[in-house]
Simulated assay, not measured.
Amino acid sequence: MYFLNGDRIYIKPQNSCAGFDNQLLDCLFQLKNFNASKKIFKLNFFVDTASEEDYQNLSAKLEKQVGEKFPSPVVVCLIAQPPLTCRVLVEAFYYDSTLWQAGLIHDKNGTAILFKREKTEVLIGNVQSNRINTCRKNAEIAFSALEGLLQQAALPVDSVIRQWNYIENILGMDNGRQCYQEFNNVRSAFYSGYFDKTGYPAATGIGINRGGVLIEFVAVNSRDAVSIPLDNPEQVAAHDYSKKVLVADKPEEKSTPKFERARYFELFKKKMVFISGTASIRGEKTVGTGDPVEQTRITINNIQQLYSPEQLLKISGNLLQPQYGHARVYIKNRKDFAAVKRTFKKYYGNLPVVYIIADICRDDLLVEIEGKVILE
């Protein structure tokens, strides 16, 4: 994490044609060497699995192997999304252990690292429920676990500034109700009364092939932090969507997605923007239907609005220089990969980016992009 005086890197197998086990061992070997100079605290493994049993077995295997290879605690997260250029992709987060103290905390359904420095506390981890058949129940259990971790760390709910919400069968139906809408209903109930003054977290809501409901989060409690929600003037804020774009039979079951388009965040002179999962939406309507190139172009334009010179000047009063730090690009259909990649490179050149296959929160959306912007 940038504001922990560290960052994140993506580890790919050196031989993308090798079998899965060899690719995984190669990634773990690279990570062990990397950890000799950097203090890794969280690993996300992007892998597809053939069944729920395979998912559970691989999750246990990763926990065991990481525990054997790393001397200090590491939070492990298995995200059932297939990467497009290899069979396993690892996202590694590291921090400066000379500046931050770190300790592991557990909940029955979650794990996190609590960082402390002076009077600042940062909690980073993930919670998950995938043992129940319904999305709503999984979401309730996951948010309950999030609450438990926050309580252990003595952090309020509104200290959460960034979330990644992974939802199995996101567009599918759960007892006649859309899974994503059910997740939004649970999230709204959990957030109720907490974010009225601060604005909601930046967030991504995206599909996974297995895993129930999985939530990654970053929470910060500090008098020295500055955290400001950002809007795109060409998009309706997601939490202000009208009922007509939400999927449910009854108005009372149509809670809006509670997240901000982005958040400006500053801590210990580190300045950045968390870019939420962003898609080809203008106002509250999908545009570029059926055209992955156009959707990618509009998505990037939407992202650039969030760190425009006018936006940054309004936030800080200074002319900050933005540098897009990294991106995840989620693509609904494998056949669109080449066109999406070509369009992304046209705007961002050789920026560190990973491409992942994932279902997106509307039937007509083909691409979603998230990332961070470093400000200097």
Results as ranks from 00 to 15, higher is better:
16 S>W: 02
349 G>K: 08
178 Q>W: 03
296 T>P: 05
278 T>M: 08
67 G>S: 08
370 E>G: 15
338 A>D: 15
167 I>W: 01
49 T>W: 03
229 P>T: 09
121 E>C: 06
66 V>C: 00
222 S>Y: 15
133 N>H: 13
367 V>W: 01
310 E>A: 14
355 Y>Q: 05
331 I>Q: 04
286 T>V: 14
345 K>C: 12
307 Y>T: 15
120 T>D: 10
253 E>Y: 09
208 I>M: 00
290 G>E: 03
339 A>C: 13
229 P>V: 12
206 I>A: 04
176 G>S: 04
190 F>E: 03
101 Q>S: 14
270 K>N: 07
115 F>G: 00
79 I>D: 03
189 A>Q: 15
117 R>I: 07
234 E>Y: 08
67 G>V: 04
264 Y>H: 08
171 L>F: 02
353 V>F: 04
78 L>M: 10
17 C>T: 13
213 V>S: 05
291 D>A: 09
158 D>R: 02
156 P>A: 10
8 R>Y: 12
155 L>S: 07
302 N>D: 05
327 A>T: 11
1 M>I: 06
39 K>T: 12
244 K>H: 15
134 T>L: 14
343 T>Q: 13
165 N>V: 07
20 F>P: 04
113 I>K: 06
286 T>I: 12
297 R>N: 12
100 W>G: 06
55 Y>F: 02
195 F>L: 05
284 E>Q: 13
246 L>F: 06
284 E>L: 06
68 E>R: 10
161 I>Q: 13
153 A>R: 09
357 I>Y: 02
255 S>R: 10
256 T>R: 15
22 N>Q: 15
356 I>R: 03
62 L>S: 05
80 A>R: 02
260 E>G: 08
233 P>Q: 01
270 K>V: 11
67 G>P: 02
185 N>T: 13
206 I>W: 13
163 Q>M: 13
372 K>V: 15
275 I>V: 14
72 S>H: 14
308 S>V: 07
134 T>I: 13
160 V>G: 09
234 E>T: 09
84 L>K: 11
214 L>W: 00
254 K>D: 09
298 I>R: 05
188 S>T: 12
50 A>G: 11
372 K>R: 14
131 R>M: 10
79 I>A: 04
71 P>T: 15
83 P>C: 07
91 E>W: 09
104 L>F: 14
223 R>E: 11
185 N>R: 10
53 E>M: 10
22 N>G: 08
148 G>E: 02
47 V>R: 12
217 F>Y: 07
245 V>Y: 13
333 N>D: 12
151 Q>N: 12
94 Y>V: 01
367 V>M: 04
215 I>E: 00
113 I>W: 00
232 N>S: 09
193 G>D: 07
246 L>V: 03
140 E>T: 03
